[in-house]
């Protein structure tokens, strides 16, 4: 079952058409004719270097940015041109966890207001109800209700990340876009967050679109992987097979760039598999 689908999505920044049918030739597109589908209960990895258009693609999928051309489908409904009110109804179905949680919180808001915002927007206006659902969301990411009165600046990096996840799941979505959720965390927090996300996926029956530039995580976390470069998808593989079956030289290059744990393991065929099993 396809939950969210991109069809030939293209984004050109600063695109202007003088004539209606003139092609967008003036600037290199940030995303160029990408088609992608997220299926139910799967984790789709989207890998690529910084600036390859991963985040732009994610934002277009959530209709946070308007595509220059192409379609976006949610459960076979074409939502490309849905207006604000129609979008609002399905916003609760698809949420996003930002790369840098701290900057995704209004510094003037405390955690209770941060969590109440999506609730209020989806029509839950009672304060008690907001509080109950917020506390529930906090609990499921391993934070206590006491955090509600804190400001983001008073939380540690790991707690901020958890609040970011709590905000995304407070509406019980079915799709979660994870925009490099680990890049601002150190290694131990990375591991914790990964476990948390795996658990949440089971509990809440989520589907993840997992955006990263770090291939070392992909294999155990993703069911399928798409490799992106310069706005285009180069290849797709099943997660566990990326290591063995990667065909495109760029993918190979990315794989080779993963640091080995021991110098002797460098450039040996199944480095990654060994590393991961050992660290688990």
């Amino acid at each position: 079952m396809k939950l969210l689908e991109a069809v030939e999505l293209t984004k050109v920044y600063g695109a202007k058409r003088r004539l209606r049918n003139q092609p967008f030739s003036e600037q290199a597109p940030a995303v160029n004719g990408v088609s992608l589908e997220l299926r139910q209960n799967e984790t789709l990895g989207l890998v690529g270097e910084s600036g390859c258009g991963k985040s732009t693609l994610a934002r277009m999928l959530l209709r946070l940015e308007a595509p220059t051309s192409g379609r976006i489908r949610y459960r076979d409904m074409d939502i490309t041109n849905w207006n604000f009110n129609r979008m609002r109804e399905i916003r609760s179905r698809m949420q996003i966890v930002f790369q840098n949680s701290f900057s995704s919180f209004n510094p003037a808001f405390d955690v209770s207001r941060i969590l109440a915002e999506p609730l209020r927007n989806s029509g839950i206006r009672s304060r008690d109800e907001q509080r109950r659902l917020s506390a529930e969301a906090l609990e499921s990411v391993g934070l206590s209700e006491a955090c509600l009165v804190r400001r983001p600046a008073e939380l540690s990096g790991g707690q901020q990340q958890r609040v970011g996840i709590a905000r995304a799941i407070v509406l019980r979505p079915e799709i979660l876009i994870l925009d490099e959720p680990f890049s601002s965390l150190d290694f131990s927090l990375r591991r914790q967050t990964m476990h948390l996300l795996s658990e949440l996926k089971q509990q809440l029956r989520l589907s993840y679109l997992f955006i990263t530039h770090d291939l070392s995580i992909i294999e155990h976390f993703c069911d399928r992987v798409a490799v992106m470069r310069q706005g285009e998808i180069l290849e797709r593989q099943a997660g566990v097979e990326l290591q063995t079956k990667a065909r495109h030289p760029y993918t190979r290059m990315l794989l080779d760039a993963i640091p080995a744990q021991h110098p002797r393991q460098r450039k040996i065929g199944h480095v990654l598999t060994e590393n991961c099993t050992r660290t688990e």
């Binding site: 934002r59 946070l64 604000f84 916003r91 609760s92 930002f98 995704s104 209004n106 905000r167």
Partner: peptide
């Protein structure tokens, strides 16, 4: 251009 404006839009807040 702040991230939290983007986050607010993702959560369905009106302009």
């Amino acid at each position: 251009e702040k991230d939290y404006v983007m986050a607010a839009r993702a959560s369905g807040s009106s302009h």
